[in-house]
Design a protein around this nucleic acid. Structure first.
Lengths: 132, 132
DNA sequence: CCGTGTCTACGAAAAATTTCGTAGAAAAAA
DNA sequence: TTTTTTCTACGAAATTTTTCGTAGACACGG
């Protein structure tokens, strides 16, 4: 299943910081929102509610430590990104991964190192294609 | 501004088929939805309403021909994809285009021709980087 | 001419997502 | 101990997006 936009924000924090309390997540969330200036800060109970919903959906696990709960991501970052990417490619590029990559490389300037990484990856894929 | 999911579906049809009536768009929409089996078919007035909203938002233009209206995309496909891509990279890969590309190339098998295209593009970018 | 079908406009229901207010329990501070 | 803060639970607003029902105008076939 696909996490919503807000759920994804929280997942990123859990992936990066590891298991965390609602308080921590909410603080980081608001720092980031403040830094980027894209969204409003949200109240504590908003994050709490979201994380409870994510728990119901199975996106996070929860352990009780005394009064407070500690949440941890229950889904892998790469799996989730892969799932979202699939949807995005279908929706925005009508399934053409090549178009997506071209657009991505065309717009944003990737560093020389990143380009090298990508070249290496392509070479590897070609290897596998020639020797199946 | 960013089109919603449904609005994007309609834009794809207008980009591909050129200026079209609501009837045509709705038919194609339902064919595609039926083919992929992902979503339910939607009624005529649903598409009509969506396209009216898109007109208000400026995503499409509209010309009256007798009783019926013909709609055309008012935004460029590449511009829109670029905008959506920007949001998606920020949201899902926290801004790392390189990660996105790696993930995209890693998951889906691109054809040899596509890989060649991408390699050519990378070469071109490297050209521009060495000669700024 | 008359019924039937198709078109637009419009409001509002339905669904999905996000946000918050309040209550009660537990902890911490005073 | 008393007060204040901090937690969870929960329901329900507020928002956004999608869908549909209905009405009135026009066209077309019979």
């Amino acid at each position: 299943m696909k996490p919503t936009e807000s759920e994804l924000e929280i997942l990123h924090i859990l992936w990066e910081k590891g298991p965390s309390t609602v308080r921590t997540v909410n603080d980081v969330l608001n720092e980031r929102r403040k830094a980027s200036g894209q969204k409003e800060s949200s109240g504590y109970t908003t994050s709490l509610k979201l994380m409870q919903i994510m728990h119901e959906k199975g996106f996070v696990t929860r352990t009780e430590e005394g009064r407070t709960h500690t949440y941890a991501a229950a889904v892998q970052q790469e799996d989730t990104q892969s799932l979202l990417l699939q949807h995005f490619v279908d929706q925005t590029f009508r399934g053409s991964t090549a178009r997506l990559v071209m657009q991505a490389l065309g717009n944003h300037e990737a560093s020389a190192e990143e380009l090298d990484e990508i070249k290496a990856l392509i070479a590897q894929i070609e290897q596998n294609q020639s020797k199946p």
